[in-house]
Design a binder for these strands. Structure first.
Lengths: 214, 214
DNA sequence: GTCTTGAAGATTGTACACAATTTTTTCCGT
DNA sequence: ACGGAAAAAATTGTGTACAATCTTCAAGAC
């Protein structure tokens, strides 16, 4: 099996991503390259690559010869981000309702089961992965590989902002129920319903996140 | 006025982007860091940053300790890319139909005029910019800053694949007419119509691109 | 007192050297 | 010949030094 074996720049990026999501940096704060490099115990070369990734993800702004400045998302922006994600999910679901194969439906049922099992075992970390897999199958079933890729990318970008609400347990039970409904809509090839359910599925998460933050 | 003043890594990125779009590299071809660095007359440090940007844009795959490999989009993928862009445009237009202000409508009318003037003067390079400005106003009018940003980003990523069809002159006249229709739909706050027009507006461009390539 | 100028300091940008890793080649045993 | 291990070559990853640029601050002109 080929492992990704991420380079240190990517590791640094993920740590920075987490720090931004935790709100450790103020909005507009400059990310000092030498300070951060020392802090992470690396040289500026890989750190700079990480900063570029951060800027590319929209979490910072990279200004040539000036520095990179964090863009701390406020509530409004977070809602906007989740709204975009919800729409991507909704679109994938709508397309998938038309194009999904029986083999993919089988995979989806299995993924839903794995989600339930992880939830039953209270293994929330694995639940997160199984949940991502469930949604990933829908992205793929939409029949637009580029869309699937972009949606996955967006999901990844939102991840640091979702972790807080991962452990809102009562929410997870509802989430499972919504999975079943989405699955049913896809099986029935009811595109509008699948679209609406997928949209609502994520919309609620953003609300939960807001509640936790405030 | 604050200019961007892009760093060399960004310049290298744009050149690589163009080379990929022109089909200069085969799919899966490894981008040799030392060879390209020599070719561009820079060291590997900024070149590597450019390669990461390329990978982030989906035009290459960056595999740690192995290299970065170009992902030459085939026709199917190009259609997929334009389909996603069309949907983003459509969504922006739908939201804008509800939320656009009269000030923004004025800006839009002005932008449309500037497009027409550039077209009349056969200044196609400026037409491209004015056209981008026209659409940019719609993105902003959607009232979701994050969506606007992402749509702009996607527009930028597709740019190298669109330049070929920029000079299909008869297409441009039709494009102008479509601008007027979109503008009218927004003025009438007819969301479904604006959405459909925006979607069709870009869908056609992708078809034109295909014709030019083949 | 305000504005301009310029020098000093701080910070980013890049070249280069070396370390780490992967890929290729060579050589040996069977 | 064939497979496999080890050495050699090639390539990527990172630390460091220096160049380029920006920011700050002080001195001087008006």
């Amino acid at each position: 099996m080929s492992r990704p074996k991420t380079a240190t720049a990517d590791l640094i990026y993920e740590r920075l991503e987490g720090l931004v999501a935790e709100g450790r940096f103020g909005d507009g704060e400059r990310l000092d390259e030498v300070r951060l490099a020392a802090e992470f115990g690396v040289s500026r070369t890989p750190l700079r690559e990480a900063l570029r990734l951060l800027a590319n993800a929209g979490l910072a702004e990279f200004i040539p010869n000036r520095g990179t400045f964090v863009r701390q998302p406020d509530f409004t922006r977070l809602v906007e981000m989740f709204e975009v994600m919800a729409e991507l999910e909704a679109w994938c679901a709508r397309l998938a309702a038309h194009r999904i194969t029986s083999a993919e439906l089988l995979l989806l049922r299995q993924a839903a089961s794995l989600c339930e099992r992880a939830l039953g075992q209270k293994d929330y970390h694995r639940y997160y992965d199984e949940n991502a897999a469930f949604h990933g199958i829908i992205y793929d079933a939409a029949g637009n590989a580029f869309l699937a890729e972009e949606t996955r990318s967006m999901q990844r970008r939102l991840r640091p902002f979702r972790q807080a609400q991962l452990f809102a347990v009562d929410r997870l039970a509802r989430s499972m129920e919504e999975h079943r409904q989405i699955l049913a809509a896809l099986e029935a090839r009811d595109a509008p319903k699948a679209e609406d359910l997928a949209r609502a599925h994520l919309r609620i998460q953003s609300v939960v996140y807001q509640q936790l933050r405030s």
